[in-house]
Simulated assay, not measured.
Amino acid sequence: MSFPQTGVADENATTAPGLVYHLGRAVLMPVVRLVYRPRVLGRSNVPKSGRVILASNHLSFIDSIAIPVVAPRRVQFLAKSSYFDGTGAKGWLSRTFFTSIGAVAVERGAGAAATEALEAGKGILENESAFAIYPEGTRSLDGRLYKGRTGVAWLALSTGAPVVPVGLIGTDELMPVGSTVPKLKRVTVIFGEPLDLSSHGPATSGKARRHATDEIMAAIHALTGQERADAYNEAPPADTMEKIKRAVLRPERV
């Protein structure tokens, strides 16, 4: 997932899009298409209505802008609350921009924060909306496709939402990690065929969640052709105790 450190979502997570969203889309989409000319394939694979999960690989900060801009319908995703609570002109610009692309504010937290973020995503889906998520959990710094965390499968199996795999190609060149201004690079966004994961079993089954997640990651790989990494994308353990926890306890990644 892309939000392992997030908390409870903003109360506006499931409300209808407002004027800022519609104006932002009306202005942003033509500009992006004119300047960056993204290649978009498979838009018809995204259901025009009803709940759906867009599960994507994650290469750059710009991914969370690319998907909502080119998708054929409103897409919501979770973003840290600091993008929304700034002051002055800079704070207003940030808040307006992220609202315009369908972002929902979440507060940073620890402990049960990942579970709370999943519940926020579930609420968005139960409002018959489209919800975007990165199963890898964070951006890939080496371009490889990492093992998916099972939160995406929990969302799909607990809500019955189909999963549309999304392949992003070139966004790491458009806006490399650490950069603040996008380059003039053309990117490709591919929407794959929807996946019905119900055959794997209930959301309460760890085995069902793992197998469903693996199917999603295989579908993403088929779109991007990235080299696969048989590991989770996470920071190295900070100390010996963390190494022991990962090696012995091996908690299920959400």
Score class of each variant (00 low, 15 high):
Ser44His: 14
Pro68Ala: 11
Pro165Glu: 05
Phe191Ile: 03
Asp230Ile: 14
Lys185Ile: 15
Gly24His: 08
Ala26Lys: 09
Ala231Gly: 04
Pro202Asp: 04
Ala112Gly: 05
Glu252Ala: 13
Pro4Lys: 00
Gly42Ile: 13
Arg246Gly: 04
Ala103Asn: 01
Arg253Asp: 05
Ser94Cys: 08
Pro135Asp: 02
Thr6Asn: 06
Ile190Lys: 13
Ser44Gln: 15
Thr138Ala: 07
Asn45Ala: 09
Ala26Phe: 15
Phe97Thr: 01
Met241Asn: 11
Asn45Glu: 11
Ala113Leu: 00
Pro176Val: 04
Met29Gly: 13
Ile67Met: 06
Gly206Trp: 10
Pro194Met: 07
Ile67Leu: 09
Thr138Asp: 00
Pro236Leu: 09
Pro4Leu: 07
Leu93Trp: 12
Lys243Gly: 04
Glu128His: 13
Ser81Phe: 07
Gly178Val: 05
Ala71Arg: 03
Tyr146Gly: 04
Ala132Ile: 04
Gly167His: 04
Arg253Ile: 12
Ala113Cys: 00
Ala238Gly: 00
Arg246Met: 12
Thr14Gly: 12
Phe84Gly: 02
Arg210Gln: 12
Ser140Asp: 05
Gly24Gln: 05
Arg51Pro: 12
Thr6Gln: 07
Ala229Ile: 06
Ala110Tyr: 01
Ile244Thr: 05
Val20Asp: 03
Leu78Pro: 01
Asp63Tyr: 07
Gly206Asn: 06
Thr15Gly: 14
Arg51Ile: 12
Val75Arg: 03
Trp154Cys: 01
Ala231Lys: 03
Trp92Gln: 14
Leu28Asn: 00
Arg74Leu: 15
Ser60Lys: 05
Thr6Phe: 13
Gly192Glu: 08
Glu242Trp: 15
Ile190Met: 14
Asn12Lys: 15
Val248Leu: 15
Leu28Lys: 00
Ala130Asp: 05
Pro194Glu: 07
Leu155Trp: 09
Ala16Val: 15
Tyr83Pro: 03
Gly160Pro: 01
Arg246Lys: 09
Thr159Ser: 02
Glu173Met: 11
Pro68Ser: 09
Pro17Ala: 14
Arg144Ser: 14
Asp214Trp: 13
Pro135Cys: 08
Gly86Ile: 03
Leu118Gly: 00
Ala219Glu: 04
Ala13Met: 10
Phe61Lys: 06
Leu249His: 08
Asp230His: 13
Arg43Trp: 11
Val106Leu: 00
